[in-house]
């Protein structure tokens, strides 16, 4: 997501106070609890960063007006934060974060205190900003739906380390351990003599009739144990878990391999999965 990763490899602790201030100027940030000054109006909140950097009055005015109309709050310029809804407060936060024309917008659990409708409208706004201003957005969240809705790439961080990273589609399709730990795991019941396989359906296969074809071509009696199609901002994808007779397993794997689809045996025994 970061446009030029090499730029980011500087060690922050080695920067002087002043250099650090300039570095921070390039990163806009929005917060879970909005972090607005309650005693200042929407307008005053938005111009605050520019005041700190000594912008001229007319320039501050122009930028603030432009950003407030971008986030849809042009009629709330003189309101105080207490008069605004959570979603509106976050819009003020977004406008404030964009005033210094940052290269990255860092969203720290920015929708975690909002209801689903508000979350959706904030995410739409962020996506719009991402496309309009060509700005990288880094979204820290524990809400999986938010990731699917807005993100292109994702990384899972546990105990201070990046465990998994990749495109949203690939991470959700591969279901790495770290992801399962995060979302909680579903136990899967499987009968004796059956093998469990995971078929990953990518966006390009979504309209295919592979199950019908599998039944017809290799005549394997299968059961669908679980299937879910995720919908992200641009793509649809999902995993289908099939139970097939153990002695047909190879046939099934070859069938999907021929079709260039990912199909792997799912080895976790149901007992193990449900205990964890």
């Amino acid at each position: 997501m970061i446009s030029n990763p090499h730029e980011m490899t500087r060690s922050l602790s080695s920067l002087s106070d002043d250099a650090l201030r300039h570095f921070r100027k390039d990163i806009g940030m929005i917060f879970q609890n909005f972090a607005l000054l309650n005693r200042k109006t929407v307008f005053e909140n938005v111009v605050l960063p520019m005041q700190c950097w000594g912008y001229s009055k007319s320039r501050m005015n122009a930028i603030a007006k432009e950003l407030l109309s971008l986030v849809g709050l042009e009629n709330k310029i003189n309101a105080y934060p207490i008069e605004l809804s959570g979603g509106q407060k976050q819009r003020v936060g977004i406008a404030r974060a964009l005033t210094l024309e940052p290269k990255i917008l860092l969203c720290d659990e920015a929708t975690s205190s909002l209801d689903p409708g508000m979350t959706q409208s904030i995410l739409d706004l962020l996506r719009n900003i991402n496309e309009k201003l060509g700005l990288t957005i880094v979204f820290v969240t524990h809400e999986m739906d938010v990731i699917k809705l807005i993100c292109d790439k994702m990384a899972i961080i546990a105990e201070g380390r990046i465990n998994v990273s990749g495109s949203v589609e690939s991470v959700f399709l591969q279901e790495p351990e770290a992801l399962l730990e995060l979302v909680g795991q579903r136990p899967m019941d499987i009968h004796h003599g059956k093998a469990l396989v995971r078929v990953s359906v990518k966006n390009e296969n979504i309209a295919d009739t592979f199950l019908y074809e599998m039944a017809r071509e290799i005549a394997v009696p299968f059961t669908i144990l679980s299937a879910g199609i995720e919908r992200t901002n641009r793509k649809r994808f999902g995993n289908i878990f099939l139970a097939v007779p153990e002695n047909d397993l190879q046939k099934v794997l070859i069938f999907f391999n021929d079709r260039k689809m990912t199909c792997v045996p799912h080895n976790d025994s149901p007992a193990e999965r449900s205990i964890r």
């Binding site: 300039h22 570095f23 921070r24 990163i27 940030m29 972090a35 605050l48 960063p49 700190c52």
Partner: peptide
Amino acid sequence: DPNLILAARSFGAS
């Protein structure tokens, strides 16, 4: 609210 300090730092306030 200490978050305000965090926010102010985030846009490079001294």
